[in-house]
């Protein structure tokens, strides 16, 4: 069965991409599956300078999910290009760099560093950083800032497709989706984590050192699906669905509401070969959905009364 998907100038073998922060730099998983079989790999969030990230504890398991507050610990974009990218099978699978910055200028600079790199297939822009220069509200919650950050990346990215990754912690996801489209985004990916919290009643302290963290995993899938559905109706650019996808059936739900591809995140922790197993399972799930190919399934949602 032909599982290929094409969007924003990318041609993927299948619609299964591993999500940023859950698959390291890919190399950590090379003994559990052939990385070349993945539709794509979004690497750990990259910043201009190395970041040590937050204090411990950083993660906690929650019912059907987890909270994390890693704080974008990463070796910096230069170390990624020098030490990690050459080891990745970038000729065979799309390596997508995830950009993390706290100002519009930094986003532009990061895009500039990556623009000439042959091994980088696309840029995913993480607009969820608390923006200190704009009163602490996260970038991703301010449509005007989303547009500006997108424009800054588009200006410096060369010919790399730009995917803007949206936060669900907003009143209206459609407004944010349109803001990214207005900034020139080639595609959107959503959702990032939902802001959450856990408390240890014995110590009466927050479990996470950062107090709050991002909720991910199957627990958030219904929210993610609703956001992807709304975003797909709001914009004309392709959408990559993210949020709690743990099976081939989950992936097809997102494609049915309009996603072109999906990212698998927390499910990579169920077992390290889970993304490969989802790919193996896609043809069976496609038969179940009576879909001939991905293009036919995409956005084929049948609404009440249709």
């Amino acid at each position: 069965m032909d599982l290929r998907v094409e969007f924003a100038g990318l041609v993927l073998k299948n619609p299964i991409i591993t999500a940023s922060g859950t698959f390291g730099f890919g190399l950590e998983f090379s003994s559990f599956g052939d990385l070349k079989r993945l539709g794509g790999i979004v690497v750990k969030g990259l910043s201009l300078k190395p970041r040590e990230g937050n204090a411990m504890p950083r993660i906690v398991e929650t019912p059907c999910g987890m909270l994390n507050a890693i704080g974008i610990q990463n070796p910096g974009v230069e170390a990624f290009l020098k030490d990690k990218l050459p080891l990745l099978p970038w000729r065979e699978t799309a390596i997508i760099a995830n950009l993390y910055a706290c100002s519009v200028e930094e986003f532009g600079d990061l895009a500039g560093v990556l623009s000439g790199e042959e091994g980088v297939a696309a840029l995913e822009v993480n607009v969820s950083c608390p923006n200190v220069t704009h009163g602490g509200a996260a970038f991703g919650q301010d449509p005007a800032q989303i547009t500006k950050a997108t424009e800054a990346v588009k200006k410096r990215c060369g010919n790399k497709p730009v995917i803007v990754k949206l936060s669900p912690n907003v009143t209206d996801i459609a407004v944010c989706a349109r803001a990214a489209e207005a900034g020139g985004a080639d595609a959107l990916s959503l959702i990032n984590t939902l802001l959450g919290m856990a408390v240890d009643i014995k110590t009466r302290k927050p479990v996470l050192a950062n107090v709050v963290g991002g909720l991910s995993g199957p627990a958030i899938k219904p929210v993610a699906l609703r956001c992807v559905y709304q975003a797909c109706r709001a914009v004309g650019i392709p959408v990559v669905g993210i949020g709690g996808i743990a099976s081939a059936e989950d992936a097809l739900e997102f494609i049915t509401v309009g996603a072109t591809a999906v990212e698998v995140g927390t499910a990579n922790f169920l077992r390290p070969d889970q993304s490969f197993r989802i790919i193996d399972d896609l043809p069976r799930a496609m038969l179940k959905a009576r879909a001939a190919d991905m293009a036919e399934l995409r956005g084929s949602l049948v609404l009440p009364g249709q």
């Binding site: 922060g21 390291g24 504890p57 950083r58 993660i59 990579n268 390290p272």
Partner: peptide, 16 residues
């Protein structure tokens, strides 16, 4: 000993 999510160095949840 730390609690871990991935065990393979990817999630960065078990650092010291």
């Amino acid at each position: 000993e730390k609690s871990m999510a991935c065990g393979v160095g990817a999630c960065l949840g078990c650092v010291c």
